[in-house]
Design a protein around this nucleic acid. Structure first.
Lengths: 202, 202
DNA sequence: CCCACAACTTGACACTGACAAGATTGCCCG
DNA sequence: CGGGCAATCTTGTCAGTGTCAAGTTGTGGG
């Protein structure tokens, strides 16, 4: 009631009525609002009723697009894995994939957080599993395409190592655990150094 | 059912009633119950009232020991950092510290999860910050005590790398993201291989 | 044109965290 | 020994939440 029409006037043609019963793109509105809340205060602070208020709809409207709270978070995670897959796919080499992984976590912190919080997700959701598989394929491809100078190490282990390093760095970064060690240096540049430490082949 | 131990007769109570009005060690009981719930279903599934029910006390009893939900989780995180510090301190070298880090995450998944979920914690809590500082000291000590053959790399960067690798591996492990890559191999042994990949000096 | 379906609303219920005020008890100090 | 005091626990209450059920409104395809 207090937020009749905030600045949610995105792509509507007839922008006269304050609340035209049909929102137009409520699903997207709820998603972006949820991403804002999660990025600011974490997934715990997320309230479906609050999201509905922000979008200017009734408290039960979100349930029609996402069945319940878990459904909303699952949709976010699926979207995140899709974005990540696309990002990794364009990587030049494995180190670049790692850099992009870290960049993704920083640019999409809400997605990243939810993607790796399995208790919040519907594990058997189709969109989620397919998107996750896509991201996994992209990661595996980046690993196998690495310059195979280190023949002695199993490619699978190299993949685990690369993923662990990137994931740990990104996670600690988002949790503000590396503020003083990294300082004001560019995190991506720091990670590049870490990656060379892992795979120094030449 | 729940009222069988309240309204007891007015006996002396020195040797008769096992658990009268006063629980005895309610704080510990709530903590361990909370750890069970978190390990099973994550911190989101945690309900103060449910914990009170499990302990056989009234719904408002936990609030006396931990001010609120955040207070309970903060206490868990502080305890976790204390345990971690003690574990890391006993490490032989840096690789052993990493192995112990991973082992800690697997043996105390609830602690580990809460420790690195800053939105759930009271950041300025004294016990938490001191325990965290202790753990940080132990980690830093393990890093600086490493065999300094790799002169070229900054010790600080080496610390970030080691922590990132261990933390990422542990996190992915807990999130069940490494089930098929690791397979039935011992995770600690797998991590040992990763660690040697990071620091191969000879 | 109309009607079946999608989008949204209203209402209700059980549950939760948090607060306030009262009850009970261990125990310290006289 | 015993009285009071503070810690511990209870009862009661309130606003807020997720989720279900049933009704209302708009819209696009036959």
């Amino acid at each position: 009631m207090r937020t009749l029409l905030t600045m949610t006037e995105k792509t509507d043609g007839a922008t006269k009525t304050p609340r035209p019963y049909h929102h137009g793109d409520l699903r997207r509105a709820i998603l972006t609002a949820a991403l804002d809340v999660i990025a600011a205060d974490g997934p715990f602070a997320l309230s479906l009723r609050d999201l509905a208020r922000r979008a200017g709809v009734s408290h039960a409207a979100p349930a029609h697009h996402f069945k319940d709270r878990t459904g909303l978070l699952t949709a976010i995670a699926a979207e995140g894995f899709g974005l990540l897959a696309q990002t990794i796919r364009d990587a030049a080499d494995l180190k670049d994939a790692g850099v992009r992984y870290v960049r993704f976590a920083r640019e999409h912190p809400a997605h990243f957080q939810v993607m790796f919080a399995p208790d919040l997700l519907r594990a058997d959701d189709l969109e989620l599993t397919t998107a996750r598989a896509l991201a996994g394929d992209a990661l595996r491809e980046a690993v196998t395409a690495v310059n195979p100078e280190n023949r002695g190490t199993d490619a699978r282990l190299a993949g685990i190592a690369a993923w662990s390093l990137a994931h740990g760095f990104a996670t600690l970064l988002l949790g503000r655990n590396l503020d003083d060690p990294v300082g004001d240096r560019d995190p991506e540049e720091v990670f590049r150094t870490l990656a060379t430490m892992l795979f120094r082949s030449a």
